[in-house]
Each structure stands twice: as structure tokens, then as C-alpha cells.
Design a protein around this nucleic acid. Structure first.
Lengths: 247, 247
DNA sequence: TCCATGTTGGAACACTGCTCCAGACGTGGC
DNA sequence: GCCACGTCTGGAGCAGTGTTCCAACATGGA
């Protein structure tokens, strides 16, 4: 009988690369990067370490795969209503990444690691492609495509990395919205207060903007930055060197 | 005699927080984040783990301190000739961070970690203050200070993180310049070639800009992005909501 | 039926961060 | 001179990690 249950169990939930990555993402969401240990994974999947190394390889490769999966999903997710202008599409992609990192905190670090280790790996490539297409659709002259795209992508990455929120417990998702907002306000208030108590000699600027921090919405602020870069792009001069005036 | 040498050794190179951080930075530069182990540190400093925990605390705190130190040094380093416009000053600060991360690869990841864990810790604070002052000096209306500054900072962070180069051996520093340039060109060439072989259906944009990648200078590209954001800042509308027209 | 191939679980190993503590150091009071 | 006490040091030991290795299992085809 023991064998029989084993068998059916195997059949029903056969171990696969996808299932392992899925479990890894859950562990990461629940307890951060430190929460993903091979032993925790084997326990959750009721298996041994050999099976995991057989399917996905080392822990590092698993982390890469998890990052890849989540980012690809965020980029692929289509919004309810199709955006009509390239600007809107850029905002949609940007917010998709923003939300993905807010939801999976560990992504921020992992993204940075992939960015440094392999600057043009699949993750970066996908993001650049998504944004780049819209930059092209904006009518930017070809010589400026790279500059414009990387300005957008780098802003997005920097901003999302800093704005990765400290997540709540994973258990219930619904009533979190209000509580999250409250925590958020409290956090901003604390930051604002801390800035006001800084040494005026060392930090005159931060003291000056402490007030603005209190009435501050992360997503709106993020979008304001996007718009800033977008206006920068539209006012861009033709590429340096060859003065290829196109007017 | 054994005791005597011990004594003088202690006196001469007394263990201190600074000396430990210095050694930690050297280890990190030489072998990346993985190279900084407590045991390697004790060996290099000819001491035990107890002494290290006494002076700096856990490995995480040591990493934070190392990041702090290097970033602060990069921000404090004054250029040979004082820049005369705020724009120039911003470029100087940005390049300082750019070079610091290029020199200490591990900084990219570490910066991202600090950015997520404590979004307004000393590191972020220092960078924001440095950039923010110049934004103020640019004559940006106060309501836009935060948006303008964070756009710049986030672009800088995103770009520097991606551009952290794969470092050479630490041993010799002088004749590296040429070799680094050669490796650089080779790397860009490889990337360009890889992009040209991408699936035209999935990656039309990246294929289109593959050529531009070959004649591509990281620092110039980085500065072009800075200028893009700067023009975005100068064309910025007064803050949303309160139409506080200041003209 | 039986074997070949693809999978699995877990024991074992080397290495990690960290704690703990006996004792050395050096500086004050006597 | 000496002692005592707080500061500081080195290293043994512990719990936990990633990874390797291999005997045992499952399953489809001959």
C-alpha cells in the first residue's frame, strides 16, 4: 500500500522544473531570499535534494529562473484596456514592473545581481525590448533609440528597486489594502520627521523637502518621473557627432 | 620573546573598526561578495572571529559599513577643477558613483540591497542630498525638487548598476587601461553579434540597435542619459494639483 | 518478463556565520 | 610595585548551509 500511494502521488504531482520554480517563488515571497533553502524546498515538495539538482541545478540557477519567470510574466501581462498611445504603453510596462517588485521584494536584489553579472541576459533583454518598441513608436530618430530607451529602463529599474515595499504577511490578501495604506502613511510620516531632525549643515536639501514627503504617493511619484524622462526624450537633440538634422 | 612580539604587533597595528572595513573592501574587490568570509578576514588580519564581531558585528553590518564607506568617499571626492555650473556638478557626482561601482563591482548588489531594505538609509540620503542641492541650484521650482532629484538619482543608480564592469585581476593597476579597453570592445562586439542573431519576431527592437552597440562608449552613453534627464527637468511643468504658476 | 533509462530521496562532506569563553592586555588606584 | 578591573583577543564548537554522490525506485519498450 505504501508503494501504491507513493506511485499515485508521483503520478498526480509529478516533480517538474516548473513546479520547483513555483515553490521557490512562494518561499521567496514568504521569507525573502534567505527563506529559499534547498532543505525548505525539499520539505515543501516532499522530495530530496537530488531531485531538485536534477531538474534545475544549483540554488543560483534556481534564483535566476525564478527571477526570469516573474519578470517575464510581468512583461507579458496585458492590461484590461489596451493603451492607445506609446506613452501609455510605456506607463503600463513600467507599472507592471513596479508592481511586480512591490509584490516580490526579493526581485529588487535579484534583478540587480542579474544586471551586474550578465548585463544583457534574458531579463534585461526583455525589458529593453518592451520599452524600446514604444520608444520607436514615439517617433524618436533612430540615432537616439538607445539613449532614450536606456534612460527609461534605468530610471524604471532604479525607482522600482528603491520602492520595493516591506511586505505584509502573505496569508490574507484582501483586507491588506487598507492596512498597507496606513502603514505606508506611517512610514512616510516617520521618514519626514527623521529628515526634519537632520543636521541643517549637512543635509539642507533633505530638510527642505521633508514636508513634501508626507503627501506623497509612490505610484504617482513614479509616473511623474516617467513623464519627466518622456519630455526629455521628445526634446532630445539628434545624435551627437554626425549632425544629421531631421526636421 | 613570543609575548614581546605579540605585544608590539598589537601596538603597531591595533585592530580597529576602520582596519577591518578596509580589509573587507580589499577582499570584496578581489573576490566579490562571496570572497568576504569571516574566516578569510581573520586570516588576513591575523586574528580570531571574536575580535571582528566585537568591532563591527555581523557580516551583514560589515557589508553595510563597507558600502557606506566607499560611497561616502566617492561622494566626498572633489574633482581637480571645480565645476562652475550645477549641470557640471551633477555630472561630476554621477561619474563619481559610476566609477566607484565600476571599480568595486560588489557595490552594485550591495547598493540594491540597502536600497530595498532601508530606502532612506545613510547611503541613499547622501546621494539624494548631493544631487538635490544641485537641482535646487538649477532654479527648479520647489514643488518639483523631489521629482527632479529622484528622477536623476534613480537613473544614475539603474545605469551604474548595469554598467558595473567585469573587473580584471587586482594585482597590477597601470597597464590595465589598454587591456580593459580591448576587452570592452570585444564584449560589445559579442553583444552586438548576439543581438543580430535574435529571433526577429520576438526581438525586433534589439536587432535594430545591434549596430549602435559596437561604437558605444559607456561613460558617454551614461552622460547622454544624464543630459536627457536634465532637459526633462528644465521643461518640467509646475507641480500637479496646486497650479502655482511661478513665472 | 526483464532490462535500460530516467528519476528520486537521503546520507555525507566541506564550508559558512555566529556564539561563547578563557585568558591576555593595559590602565587606573593604592 | 602591584593588584584589579574593564577592554579586547583568539579559537573551539555549534547549527545550518549548498552540493555531491549513489543505491533504490518507476516506467516504457523489447
Amino acid at each position: 500500500m505504501a508503494i501504491r500511494t507513493r506511485q499515485s502521488q508521483r503520478r498526480r504531482q509529478a516533480l517538474s522544473r516548473e513546479r520547483i520554480i513555483e515553490a521557490a517563488v512562494e518561499l521567496l515571497d514568504a521569507a525573502g531570499e534567505g527563506g529559499l533553502t534547498v532543505r525548505a524546498l525539499t520539505e515543501r515538495l516532499a522530495t530530496g535534494s537530488g531531485a531538485i539538482y536534477w531538474h534545475v541545478g544549483t540554488r543560483g540557477e534556481l534564483l535566476d529562473a525564478a527571477t526570469d519567470t516573474v519578470i517575464a510574466a510581468a512583461l507579458a501581462a496585458e492590461p484590461a484596456r489596451a493603451p492607445d498611445t506609446p506613452q501609455d504603453e510605456i506607463r503600463v510596462v513600467a507599472l507592471g514592473l513596479f508592481d511586480a517588485i512591490a509584490e516580490h521584494q526579493w526581485l529588487a536584489t535579484q534583478l540587480a545581481i542579474q544586471l551586474t553579472r550578465s548585463p544583457w541576459g534574458p531579463v534585461t533583454l526583455g525589458i529593453f525590448e518592451s520599452i524600446g518598441r514604444q520608444v520607436r513608436a514615439l517617433g524618436v530618430p533612430q540615432g537616439n533609440w538607445f539613449t532614450a530607451t536606456s534612460a527609461l529602463v534605468h530610471y524604471i529599474l532604479g525607482a522600482t528597486i528603491q520602492n520595493a515595499q516591506i511586505g505584509e504577511d502573505t496569508s490574507v490578501a484582501e483586507p491588506d489594502a487598507d492596512r498597507a495604506d496606513a502603514d505606508r502613511a506611517e512610514f512616510l510620516d516617520a521618514a519626514s520627521r527623521a529628515w526634519q531632525e537632520l543636521d541643517p549643515g549637512d543635509y539642507p536639501f533633505m530638510r527642505a523637502i521633508a514636508d513634501q514627503m508626507r503627501e506623497h504617493n509612490d505610484r504617482e511619484q513614479f509616473l511623474a518621473g516617467i513623464d519627466l524622462v518622456l519630455t526629455g526624450i521628445t526634446h532630445l537633440q539628434p545624435p551627437t557627432g554626425q549632425a544629421h538634422i531631421a526636421e
